[in-house]
Amino acid sequence: MIRVSQTSYQYPGGTRIAFPDFHIPRGNHGLLLGNSGSGKTTLIHLIGGLLRGQQGKVEVGGVDMASLTEQGLDQYRGRHFGFVFQKNHLIQALTVEQNLLAAPFFAGLPQNSENAEALLQELGLEGKRQARIRELSHGQAQRVAIARALINKPTVILADEPTSALDDKNCDKVIRLLMEASTNHGATLVVATHDQRLKSVMPVSVELVASG
């Protein structure tokens, strides 16, 4: 599903970060492990098309990310990826349901309220459809963010430090929820983290080491 080969990235004025080659097959899940500053976020943004690659090849679902036009990249991102971040980044001005439906709207997919409702139920958020974001607890907000990542039935879920700020109990809950939901929806889950606790629940695909 995801294949990274010969890839490196250099920020203006920074040293070149070289990424080891790796491959995550369809339906599998994988961990991008590494210390802070080792380039995990850079890599996950390269995979998710949030950042344009400079050297090497990043393939997702057989598509070379470099071959996509600006518009094509926006569309590909919307339809094939779901993103989960350390902070939930929900849109405060919108209700829970509107936050979910924003995903199909921006991806140019049909907006289906029943879909949203079903996802909320699945994640234990029944009755929160019309709730405001500020009325949610931290855990609820994170689950809404996960629901939003899932609603377009993406082939890949990219999670950047989803558990770093959580205690052991919640860390376990969230990672299991992510894995379970990804499996249920047939998506490949890729988690970038420095959180060593996750090694015990997910296979490590790459270990990144900070250069210099």
Binding site: H89, A103, N152
Partner: peptide
Amino acid sequence: RYDLAIMRSMGASRTK
């Protein structure tokens, strides 16, 4: 800025 970036991550084009 986070809202805008999230929208882009969901597939919104700059023009939108």
